[in-house]
Protein backbone atom coordinates (compact mmCIF):
# COMPACT_ATOMS: atom_id res chain seq x y z
CA UNK A 1 0.00 0.00 0.00
CA UNK A 2 1.48 3.29 -1.01
CA UNK A 3 1.33 6.29 1.24
CA UNK A 4 1.22 9.67 -0.40
CA UNK A 5 2.83 12.11 1.98
CA UNK A 6 2.63 15.76 1.14
CA UNK A 7 5.40 17.95 2.50
CA UNK A 8 4.40 20.27 5.28
CA UNK A 9 3.87 23.80 4.12
CA UNK A 10 5.75 25.97 6.54
CA UNK A 11 4.56 29.54 6.70
CA UNK A 12 6.51 30.92 9.60
CA UNK A 13 5.34 34.12 11.21
CA UNK A 14 7.40 37.00 9.92
CA UNK A 15 8.46 35.09 6.83
CA UNK A 16 7.55 37.99 4.57
CA UNK A 17 10.83 37.79 2.71
CA UNK A 18 9.57 34.57 1.12
CA UNK A 19 6.70 36.29 -0.66
CA UNK A 20 8.70 37.58 -3.60
CA UNK A 21 11.42 36.05 -5.66
CA UNK A 22 15.11 36.59 -5.23
CA UNK A 23 17.90 35.66 -7.59
CA UNK A 24 21.52 35.15 -6.65
CA UNK A 25 24.05 37.65 -7.97
CA UNK A 26 25.34 35.21 -10.55
CA UNK A 27 21.80 34.28 -11.65
CA UNK A 28 21.04 37.99 -12.18
CA UNK A 29 24.18 38.40 -14.29
CA UNK A 30 23.46 35.26 -16.33
CA UNK A 31 19.92 36.42 -17.07
CA UNK A 32 21.17 39.92 -17.92
CA UNK A 33 23.62 38.63 -20.49
CA UNK A 34 21.13 36.15 -21.93
CA UNK A 35 18.59 38.97 -22.43
CA UNK A 36 21.16 41.16 -24.17
CA UNK A 37 22.44 38.38 -26.43
CA UNK A 38 18.88 37.38 -27.31
CA UNK A 39 17.88 40.96 -28.14
CA UNK A 40 20.94 41.38 -30.33
CA UNK A 41 20.23 38.11 -32.10
CA UNK A 42 23.40 36.36 -30.91
CA UNK A 43 21.58 33.53 -29.20
CA UNK A 44 18.21 31.84 -29.39
CA UNK A 45 16.91 31.09 -25.87
CA UNK A 46 15.33 27.85 -27.09
CA UNK A 47 18.64 26.68 -28.52
CA UNK A 48 20.35 27.49 -25.21
CA UNK A 49 17.74 25.44 -23.37
CA UNK A 50 18.36 22.53 -25.68
CA UNK A 51 22.08 22.56 -24.95
CA UNK A 52 21.42 22.71 -21.20
CA UNK A 53 18.86 19.92 -21.44
CA UNK A 54 21.34 17.71 -23.24
CA UNK A 55 23.31 17.61 -20.00
CA UNK A 56 20.51 17.27 -17.53
CA UNK A 57 20.90 13.53 -17.32
CA UNK A 58 24.68 13.88 -17.08
CA UNK A 59 24.82 16.04 -14.02
CA UNK A 60 26.46 14.21 -11.20
CA UNK A 61 24.76 14.29 -7.78
CA UNK A 62 28.12 15.00 -6.15
CA UNK A 63 26.83 16.72 -3.05
CA UNK A 64 24.05 14.21 -2.45
CA UNK A 65 26.44 11.29 -2.76
CA UNK A 66 28.81 12.85 -0.25
CA UNK A 67 25.98 13.49 2.24
CA UNK A 68 24.82 9.87 2.02
CA UNK A 69 28.34 8.44 2.33
CA UNK A 70 28.90 10.47 5.50
CA UNK A 71 25.56 9.35 6.91
CA UNK A 72 26.51 5.69 6.30
CA UNK A 73 29.92 6.14 7.89
CA UNK A 74 28.90 8.25 10.88
CA UNK A 75 25.74 7.32 12.87
CA UNK A 76 25.78 10.59 14.82
CA UNK A 77 25.82 12.60 11.60
CA UNK A 78 23.03 10.38 10.23
CA UNK A 79 20.89 11.31 13.27
CA UNK A 80 21.55 15.03 12.80
CA UNK A 81 20.81 14.69 9.09
CA UNK A 82 17.45 13.03 9.66
CA UNK A 83 16.55 15.53 12.39
CA UNK A 84 17.50 18.68 10.49
CA UNK A 85 18.98 18.27 7.04
CA UNK A 86 19.15 22.02 6.41
CA UNK A 87 21.85 22.54 9.03
CA UNK A 88 23.47 19.08 9.00
CA UNK A 89 24.44 19.09 5.31
CA UNK A 90 26.64 22.15 5.92
CA UNK A 91 28.98 19.88 7.90
CA UNK A 92 29.97 17.87 4.83
CA UNK A 93 29.18 19.89 1.70
CA UNK A 94 29.75 23.48 0.74
CA UNK A 95 26.19 24.70 0.36
CA UNK A 96 25.44 28.10 1.81
CA UNK A 97 21.81 28.54 0.95
CA UNK A 98 19.04 26.18 0.00
CA UNK A 99 16.13 27.23 -2.17
CA UNK A 100 13.77 25.52 0.24
CA UNK A 101 13.56 23.25 3.28
CA UNK A 102 15.35 19.97 2.72
CA UNK A 103 14.28 16.75 4.38
CA UNK A 104 16.12 13.43 4.19
CA UNK A 105 13.90 10.33 4.15
CA UNK A 106 15.57 7.07 5.10
CA UNK A 107 15.13 3.72 3.39
CA UNK A 108 14.99 0.79 5.80
CA UNK A 109 14.22 -2.92 5.63
CA UNK A 110 10.52 -2.02 5.94
CA UNK A 111 10.23 1.23 3.97
CA UNK A 112 11.27 2.33 0.49
CA UNK A 113 11.02 6.06 -0.25
CA UNK A 114 10.86 7.85 -3.57
CA UNK A 115 10.49 11.51 -4.45
CA UNK A 116 8.45 13.28 -7.10
CA UNK A 117 7.02 16.70 -7.81
CA UNK A 118 3.51 16.08 -9.07
CA UNK A 119 2.82 19.78 -9.66
CA UNK A 120 5.89 20.80 -11.66
CA UNK A 121 9.49 19.73 -11.27
CA UNK A 122 10.68 20.88 -7.84
CA UNK A 123 13.99 19.15 -7.24
CA UNK A 124 16.76 19.60 -4.67
CA UNK A 125 19.25 20.61 -7.36
CA UNK A 126 21.70 22.01 -4.83
CA UNK A 127 22.41 18.45 -3.74
CA UNK A 128 21.41 16.40 -6.78
CA UNK A 129 22.40 18.59 -9.72
CA UNK A 130 19.89 19.26 -12.49
CA UNK A 131 16.86 16.98 -12.64
CA UNK A 132 16.81 14.21 -15.23
CA UNK A 133 14.35 14.73 -18.05
CA UNK A 134 12.09 11.87 -16.94
CA UNK A 135 11.69 13.46 -13.50
CA UNK A 136 10.09 16.50 -15.14
CA UNK A 137 7.97 14.48 -17.56
CA UNK A 138 4.25 13.93 -17.04
CA UNK A 139 4.33 10.10 -17.00
CA UNK A 140 6.64 9.94 -13.98
CA UNK A 141 4.92 12.81 -12.19
CA UNK A 142 1.47 11.29 -12.53
CA UNK A 143 2.32 7.62 -12.10
CA UNK A 144 4.72 7.99 -9.17
CA UNK A 145 1.74 8.50 -6.89
CA UNK A 146 -0.77 6.18 -8.59
CA UNK A 147 1.55 3.28 -9.31
CA UNK A 148 4.89 3.68 -7.54
CA UNK A 149 5.64 -0.05 -7.61
CA UNK A 150 5.03 -0.13 -11.36
CA UNK A 151 7.42 2.80 -11.88
CA UNK A 152 10.02 1.22 -9.62
CA UNK A 153 9.80 -2.05 -11.55
CA UNK A 154 10.47 -0.14 -14.78
CA UNK A 155 13.59 1.29 -13.14
CA UNK A 156 14.61 -2.25 -12.25
CA UNK A 157 13.77 -1.96 -8.55
CA UNK A 158 11.66 -4.83 -7.22
CA UNK A 159 10.14 -3.88 -3.86
CA UNK A 160 8.88 -6.89 -1.86
CA UNK A 161 5.12 -6.92 -1.13
CA UNK A 162 5.69 -6.56 2.61
CA UNK A 163 7.82 -3.44 2.16
CA UNK A 164 5.96 -0.14 2.29
CA UNK A 165 6.53 2.38 -0.52
CA UNK A 166 6.32 6.03 0.50
CA UNK A 167 6.10 8.73 -2.16
CA UNK A 168 7.13 12.24 -1.13
CA UNK A 169 5.66 15.10 -3.16
CA UNK A 170 8.06 18.04 -3.39
CA UNK A 171 6.95 21.65 -3.64
CA UNK A 172 8.46 25.12 -3.67
CA UNK A 173 8.97 25.14 0.10
CA UNK A 174 9.85 21.52 0.86
CA UNK A 175 12.13 19.16 -1.00
CA UNK A 176 13.40 15.69 -0.26
CA UNK A 177 16.27 13.36 -0.87
CA UNK A 178 16.30 9.64 -0.15
CA UNK A 179 18.92 8.12 2.14
CA UNK A 180 19.39 4.74 0.44
CA UNK A 181 20.31 1.61 2.39
CA UNK A 182 24.01 0.96 2.71
CA UNK A 183 24.99 -2.02 0.53
CA UNK A 184 26.18 -5.14 2.32
CA UNK A 185 29.85 -5.98 2.13
CA UNK A 186 31.07 -2.42 2.64
CA UNK A 187 32.21 -2.65 6.27
CA UNK A 188 35.22 -0.51 6.96
CA UNK A 189 34.94 1.38 3.66
CA UNK A 190 36.09 5.01 3.58
CA UNK A 191 33.67 7.86 2.87
CA UNK A 192 35.26 8.27 -0.57
CA UNK A 193 34.75 4.60 -1.42
CA UNK A 194 31.15 4.70 -0.21
CA UNK A 195 30.45 7.86 -2.20
CA UNK A 196 31.11 6.00 -5.44
CA UNK A 197 28.22 3.63 -4.66
CA UNK A 198 25.62 6.41 -4.42
CA UNK A 199 23.83 6.96 -7.72
CA UNK A 200 21.54 9.82 -8.60
CA UNK A 201 18.60 7.47 -8.96
CA UNK A 202 19.24 6.02 -5.49
CA UNK A 203 18.90 9.56 -4.09
CA UNK A 204 15.57 10.00 -5.91
CA UNK A 205 14.45 6.55 -4.83
CA UNK A 206 14.11 5.15 -8.34
CA UNK A 207 17.25 3.10 -7.79
CA UNK A 208 19.30 1.45 -5.07
CA UNK A 209 22.88 2.15 -4.13
CA UNK A 210 25.39 0.16 -6.20
CA UNK A 211 26.50 -3.15 -4.80
CA UNK A 212 30.24 -3.26 -4.11
CA UNK A 213 30.68 -6.26 -6.42
CA UNK A 214 29.08 -4.44 -9.36
CA UNK A 215 31.28 -2.10 -11.35
CA UNK A 216 30.08 1.48 -11.80
CA UNK A 217 27.82 1.59 -14.80
CA UNK A 218 27.73 5.34 -15.40
CA UNK A 219 24.47 7.26 -15.68
CA UNK A 220 21.60 4.81 -15.26
CA UNK A 221 19.46 6.55 -17.84
Amino acid sequence: MATHSHGDHHHDAGGDEEEFSQLSEIALRVRALESILTEKGYVDPLALDQIVQAYETKVGPHNGARIVAHAWADPAFRERLLQNANTAIGEVVDINTLDSDLRVVENTDRIHNMIVCTLCSCYPWEVLGLPPTWYKAAPYRSRAVLDPRGILAEFGVQVPEDKEVRVWDSNAEQRFIVLPQRPAGTDGWSVEQLEALVTRDSLIGTGLARRPDVAPEGAAR
Partner: peptide
Protein backbone atom coordinates in the same frame (compact mmCIF):
# COMPACT_ATOMS: atom_id res chain seq x y z
CA UNK B 1 28.88 18.22 -15.44
CA UNK B 2 27.31 21.24 -13.78
CA UNK B 3 26.70 22.01 -10.14
CA UNK B 4 23.98 24.58 -10.63
CA UNK B 5 21.62 25.55 -13.47
CA UNK B 6 23.46 28.80 -14.21
CA UNK B 7 26.65 26.87 -14.90
CA UNK B 8 24.90 24.96 -17.67
CA UNK B 9 23.57 28.23 -19.08
CA UNK B 10 27.04 29.81 -18.97
CA UNK B 11 28.47 26.79 -20.79
CA UNK B 12 25.69 26.88 -23.40
CA UNK B 13 26.17 30.61 -24.02
Amino acid sequence: VFREPWEGQAFAM
